[in-house]
Amino acid sequence: MTGSVRLSRRPLSMASAARALAGPDLGGVVVFAGRVRRDRRGPARVRAIDYEVHPGPALEVMRRLDRDARRRYGAEEVVLWHRVGRVPAGEIAVIVGVAAGHRAPAFAAARYLIDVLKRTVPIWKTERARSGRRPRGRRHPPTGRSSG
């Protein structure tokens, strides 16, 4: 078991995640990436999202999710990476990856991880508009501006 839980100020790589999930006995691999996307509503376009984190508790919860994915779904390898700090539109904010023996547990575990991560890991986001301020009419914390 080589669980991989990470908070990073540097760009995240899908290729690195796929490498971390490699294994000759792992027939099902799912890698999900959530990217910051531009807000197309209203005059102020979102240019970035600032991610704020309480690191100790966040990593503890992420490690627990890693264990849960293995125990409940049979995940053999897990990647759970999240950016912190300012993430420009178009860049990846979160990667969730699972490798398992077959596709069904890999899909189920990946879905579980991203859904529960968003609800339970102490990470917050603030949208930044072109001016560096929050877009008008949006209150913190915004929802649904990234990860699909």
């Binding site: 959530g34 309480h54 991203i114 609800r119 339970t120 890991v121 917050w124 986001k125």
Partner: peptide, 10 residues
């Protein structure tokens, strides 16, 4: 003692 508003990662 930390105050955690509703989370919003991802």
């Amino acid at each position: 003692f930390a105050v955690h508003p509703p989370y919003g990662g991802g």
